[in-house]
Design a protein around this nucleic acid. Sequence first.
DNA 1: ATGGCGCGCGCAGCGCGA
Length: 256
Amino acid sequence: MSYRLATWNVNSLKVRLPHLLDWLAQAQPDVMCLQETKTEDANFPLAAIQAAGYQAVFCGQKAYNGVAILARSALTEVAYGIPDFPDDPKRSIAATVGELRVVCLYAPNGQALGSDKYLYKLRWYEALAAWLKSELARRPRLAVLGDLNVAPEDRDVHNPKRWEGLIHVSEPERAAFRRLLELGFADAFRLFAQPEKEFSWWDYRLMAFQRGWGLRIDEILLSPELAAQCVACTIDKAPRARERPSDHAPVIAELG
DNA sequence: ATGGCGCGCGCAGCGCGA
């Protein structure tokens, strides 16, 4: 069974709904993970998404965070948050789609090195790794998609010198990300030859997108079984070039 | 490159994101 999996931080589902519907129609993903929906569940645009041919599970809140998984087929065994990590405001949702277990994540930003939010981000990653370790043992066909808010290596940063000492690139953050790879996950993007300077996020300011000043902070992690089945992983920059875009671009993985 | 954008909230300007 082949699947097209995608993840996109939409930075407000309400504002970005037209972009999302256009992208679903054009890209035809089987599974679509969304982050930063910033939408309470009562206001989730379920009818529009169903009309586009997708089912959805979601957990959101006002103003901040919020995640959702859309799928062309049934979503079952829905799980919210990270177990044993109760202080987890709408950053994780998981569901079974066909033969796949899908986890959709919005990692904390972390704000600045040494800040309370930074320490929270590292604690969140620690809890995530512990959870995913047990999940991987139980569910060999596991895909983890999301805005992981870490640029794993210098080649994932447009100008590593400029980013020294800043959030997303610090060694503890990168170690937290590598910990997930050590569990056995593959960073799907790096399973393939890629163009240089390929990113998934660009600042809204200073025409960063036009200048190519970006980071790769949205990732698709695949369990060994799924990695062996993966035939492509790409980033679609086209939505970032539209009017009133999200600051993130969708990432797509193809399972053959 | 970092004031400079864009979002939500709520009705002015702030917190937050990355």
